[in-house]
Amino acid sequence: MLGKLIKYEMRATARYFLPIHGAIMALALIMGIRGFDDNFLSVLNAILPVALALSFAGLGVMTILMVVKRFDSNLLGDEGYLMFTLPVKTSELILSKILTSMIWVLASSAVFILSMGFIIIRDIDLSAIWQELQSMQVDFYLIAVFVLLILMSIVHILLQVYASLGIAQAYSFAKNRILGGTLIFILITIAINTIETIGMTLMAYAFRESTWFMDLAAKIESNNFLTVISTMKLVFTVALVYITIKNILFYFLTKYHLQKKLNLE
Rank of each mutant, 00 (worst) to 15 (best):
M1Y: 08
L2N: 10
I6V: 15
R11H: 12
L18F: 05
L18E: 01
I20L: 12
H21Y: 11
A23R: 01
M25A: 11
A26I: 09
A28T: 03
A28H: 02
I33C: 08
R34Y: 05
R34G: 05
G35D: 12
F36N: 15
D37F: 04
D38H: 12
F40H: 11
V43P: 01
L44R: 04
N45S: 05
I47Y: 07
A51Y: 03
L54F: 11
A57T: 13
T63W: 01
T63P: 02
V68D: 00
V68F: 04
L75A: 08
G80T: 03
M83V: 11
F84Q: 12
T85K: 07
T90N: 15
S91A: 15
K97C: 01
V105G: 03
L106C: 12
L106H: 08
S109G: 13
A110P: 01
L114M: 09
M116I: 10
G117S: 08
I119T: 02
I120Y: 11
I121V: 10
R122I: 04
R122P: 10
D123P: 02
D125I: 08
L126N: 08
W130C: 03
S135A: 15
S135M: 14
Q137H: 14
D139M: 03
Y141S: 13
I143Q: 14
V145Y: 03
L149K: 02
L149E: 02
L151R: 00
M152W: 06
V155R: 00
H156M: 05
L159I: 04
Q160V: 04
Y162G: 00
S164I: 05
S164V: 03
G166E: 02
Q169P: 01
A174R: 06
N176G: 02
R177T: 04
L179Q: 05
G181D: 06
L183T: 04
L183A: 11
I186V: 15
I188R: 06
I188H: 07
I188A: 10
A191R: 09
A191K: 09
N193V: 01
E196F: 02
T197Q: 07
T197K: 04
I198F: 11
T201A: 14
M203A: 14
A204L: 09
Y205V: 10
R208I: 05
E209V: 07
E221N: 14
E221P: 04
N223K: 15
N224R: 12
T227M: 09
S230V: 01
M232K: 06
L234N: 10
L234F: 08
V235W: 07
V241D: 01
I243A: 12
T244F: 10
N247D: 14
Y251G: 09
F252T: 06
L253K: 05
K255H: 04
H257S: 03
L258T: 02
